[in-house]
């Protein structure tokens, strides 16, 4: 059945020649590749996924990210990666992937008495 259904998952775009959407007739030759943008909001914090954009190369992707995602002081550091290099888990396997963790509360560190001095647990 899979061969009749084109399933577009997040991360497929931007590398349409190879990705799931490639069998369509849509001409992508003139389009710039898609990039994922990660922004660090301040020193010490992690880069967080901010969104995606189109750009011709990495340099332009960083500059576009600066203009699109940091106009309101949202960040001090930018990472970009071409979307085609993101490998995503298959949403259709979500049941087997994630649900087994549902009933395993003992994996949470909630059975300890925390000292009052610890604020951020």
């Amino acid at each position: 059945m899979n061969q009749f259904i084109n399933k577009n998952l997040y991360g497929d775009y931007g590398d349409k020649e190879q990705a799931a959407g490639s069998s369509g007739t849509h001409n992508t030759a003139g389009e710039w590749p898609l990039w994922e943008v990660f922004i660090r909001s301040k020193a010490g914090l992690d880069h967080k996924h901010a969104g995606s954009l189109h750009a011709a190369d990495a340099q332009m992707a960083i500059e576009n990210a600066r203009d699109v995602y940091t106009r309101r002081m949202e960040g001090i550091s930018i990472w970009v990666v071409e979307s085609k290099y993101i490998h995503a888990s298959d949403p259709f396997e979500a049941a087997s992937m994630y649900e087994p963790a549902n009933d395993k509360v003992y994996r949470h560190p909630t059975f300890y008495d925390l000292p009052d001095e610890l604020k951020h647990m």
């Binding site: 710039w32 954009l53 500059e63 576009n64 203009d67 699109v68 106009r71």
Partner: peptide
């Protein structure tokens, strides 16, 4: 020509 450059120029 594309959204990102539109925003760049408007900035």
């Amino acid at each position: 020509p594309i959204l990102e450059q539109d925003i760049a120029l408007t900035n």
